[in-house]
Design a protein around this nucleic acid. Sequence first.
DNA 1: TTAGTGAGTTTAATTCTTCAACTCAGGGGG
DNA 2: CCCCCTGAGTTGAAGAATTAAACTCACTAA
Lengths: 163, 163
Amino acid sequence: MEMRRIDPVNCSVARALSVVGERWSLLIVREALDGARRFGEFHSRLGIARNLLATRLETLVTAGVMRRVPYQEPGDRQRFAYELTEQGRALRPTLVALLEWGDTYLADPQGPSVIVRHRPVDEGSSCDEPVKVVLECAAGHSHLAPEDVCRTPGPGARLVESS
Amino acid sequence: MEMRRIDPVNCSVARALSVVGERWSLLIVREALDGARRFGEFHSRLGIARNLLATRLETLVTAGVMRRVPYQEPGDRQRFAYELTEQGRALRPTLVALLEWGDTYLADPQGPSVIVRHRPVDEGSSCDEPVKVVLECAAGHSHLAPEDVCRTPGPGARLVESS
DNA sequence: TTAGTGAGTTTAATTCTTCAACTCAGGGGG
DNA sequence: CCCCCTGAGTTGAAGAATTAAACTCACTAA
């Protein structure tokens, strides 16, 4: 029985993974979200090989996830730092989701190594409560279980024949 | 100025990525969430090489993300299908987050190819509204912006010296 | 007996990662 | 001035991962 389904290749998940699905890319973004800015910071925090770090940063910059900004420490020459664009910061929910999944199923026996907290940049430590990622629909139903959602074709869907 | 920060290697994000961060792994999980169960289904939907699919499925099974279950079509020999465990289904928020990010920044000009909808398995199509992933803290503050959260050490954190 | 199918293996070519060594531009000490 | 130091990369060779294509295996159907 033939049916038409969403083309799995023309999908934003696949496109997203083609940008941030390479080894190290999401870890670089995570460190950037945590304040890393300079080549050497990424290198020493992650232990990634230098040449790979250079190509990953370049990939992330051309993809619009990061931006290369010149900086100059007093009494030193000009160097470059890497900071997240708004597009890069928008990966936070993805990283929180991965963190939560890892904490739930692969955690250290000691407990989670990282807790994400509600701590706005401008106010002090107003709330500080742990943050979770939740699925919520446009009608306001929140905390949906994974089984309560399904994929449907959108306006840009290509449909393909499939068994 | 020395400071102690969270060891980036002892982190659930890194552990999660060591399980689902390989090329194809998350796409295999996505297809499984969308109903794929058999070797050939994954193969033809994704166009992945057969040997890689075999090793990825094996990795996912040993990691506890999927389960290998025997099945037998009438008048055919016994074969094996692959289905998600609860741990595998728990990757849904991660995939929705990636999908949303891809839709926002890398979308097809036609619009998103996939829309995730609130459609519980048991009830019919009760709600059907589009689903988004949101950050929410334990105090009930919802729809947090990426800038409003930060990482803090948890009970299992190892701290390392860093510049 | 011969052909066909789903589910994999095997193999060889290509690509990606890693590690180590090297470059390049400036700063500081002697 | 000369030599060594640092941060930020680049280059090159060895090792690991990915790909495509051909092959196996167990069984069914004609």
